[in-house]
């Protein structure tokens, strides 16, 4: 159905966020507080034990300060405004918040931001290859692998992690790899088709 060209596995992995590798973003801490002046800010941060965090998100180097209890998902959504990653259960039960951390899919609601220090994060926003959809995204489009779309970023990131591990997954590996991601619209039959289509396209 799709006229999109195939893509090599190398590009599949390497392509992520290539457009911005090397760029550098410093997020001002406490960005939505009406702090009176910097020293107040600093005093508060000191009291609350804020720490410097440096990580790579979608190819961009990020250096910021966070409260030690900040969740990774909150850092992504609130500080970096990467709202593609969703919070659904906040309990590690649904996969809505799935991201890739150093090549592995993880639930970002179950991780402290500080635990990502020095690591590399890929979110749904980091999958685009320039202007083009990543083959996984394209496969979800071609196979209609969604309904309301709320679980979709998590599904795609879980599938991304699955295909990194098993480039040519068996049916069972697909079911196991995707079983941590709930879809209440129950688009499952088409999610399975989407993952299969992506696998064959990436091969």
């Amino acid at each position: 159905m799709s006229k999109k060209k195939g893509i090599s596995r190398r590009n599949f992995i390497k392509g992520v966020g290539t457009g911005v590798v090397g760029s550098y973003v410093v997020v001002p801490a406490l960005n939505n507080k009406a702090a009176k002046n910097l020293s107040d800010n600093e005093e508060l941060q000191l009291k609350e034990g804020w720490q410097v965090l440096s990580l790579k998100v979608n190819g961009k180097k990020i250096i910021t300060k966070v409260k030690p209890n900040t969740l990774l998902v909150d850092l992504l959504r609130n500080e970096l405004q990467l709202t593609g990653t969703k919070v659904v259960c906040n309990q590690g039960e649904c996969g809505g918040c799935t991201i890739i951390l150093d090549g592995k899919p993880v639930y970002s609601c179950q991780m402290l931001a500080l635990d990502a220090n020095g690591k590399e994060v890929t979110t749904i926003e980091g999958l685009l290859l320039g202007e083009e959809l990543h083959p996984l995204q394209q496969a979800f489009v071609d196979e209609d692998g969604l309904q309301c779309g709320f679980c979709t970023p998590g599904q795609i990131m879980a599938a991304y992690g699955l295909l990194l591990k098993y480039p040519d997954p068996t049916d069972e590996q697909i079911l196991n790899g995707m079983s941590g991601n709930l879809c209440r619209c129950a688009a499952y039959p088409k999610i399975i088709k989407s993952v299969k289509a992506a696998a064959s396209r990436i091969k």
Binding site: I124, L127, Q137, V141, D144, L146, G149, T152, I156
Partner: peptide, 26 residues
């Protein structure tokens, strides 16, 4: 025919209430 929003959905660009950028001071 596919879902109208499907291209946005797969990029995580579709906005739900919790994703809205509300005015400062919200």
């Amino acid at each position: 025919m596919k879902n109208y929003d499907i291209h946005q959905h797969v990029q995580g660009k579709s906005i739900f209430i919790d994703d809205m950028r509300l005015p400062a001071g919200t």
